[in-house]
Amino acid sequence: MFRKLHEPEGAITVYVDGIAASAEPGESIAAVLLRAAPHWSRTTPVTQSKRAPYCMMGVCFECLAIVDGIASVQTCLTLVRDGMRIERQHGKRSLSA
């Protein structure tokens, strides 16, 4: 669906649901999720419908995902880091004590 128009300089590796994905320093996690099939980041708590990054500026909250074990991270506002672990969020986030 989405792809880079250029080869990233100094590419780093992040892991989306355990699968390695190439990313460019300075890009958002949401941009990586839009390139990594399947193209969604979370499911809704009630109907489990799939949602994907939409506004790309932190207003709509459709881009929530689990990042390095932290649930409900707005991926459009979070920049990638080498070795980052990203998981698609299913339903309600779980709160651990």
Rank of each mutant, 00 (worst) to 15 (best):
K4S: 09
R42K: 12
G10Q: 11
A31K: 11
F2R: 14
P38M: 03
L34V: 03
V73R: 10
Q89W: 05
A20G: 05
S49G: 14
I19D: 02
A20K: 13
S49L: 15
V59Q: 14
G26P: 01
E27G: 01
A65I: 03
W40K: 02
A21M: 14
S94K: 15
A11W: 02
P25A: 06
L33R: 08
E62Y: 07
R81L: 12
S72T: 11
V59D: 15
R35M: 05
G18L: 04
S22K: 13
Q48D: 14
L64H: 13
A65L: 04
V80R: 00
G10R: 11
T47H: 14
H6G: 07
L79D: 09
I66E: 10
D17E: 10
A36F: 10
S72Y: 11
L5T: 03
A97D: 07
K92M: 10
E24H: 05
L34Y: 11
F61P: 03
A30N: 01
T13G: 02
A36K: 12
L5H: 06
K92C: 04
H6Q: 12
A23S: 05
V73M: 05
A23L: 08
F61G: 07
A21G: 01
T13A: 06
Q74H: 10
A97T: 07
L77T: 03
V46P: 09
A31Y: 08
R3N: 13
A23C: 07
G91M: 02
L34Q: 12
K50W: 02
G58K: 08
E27L: 03
R81P: 00
A31I: 05
R51N: 11
A37N: 08
A21V: 13
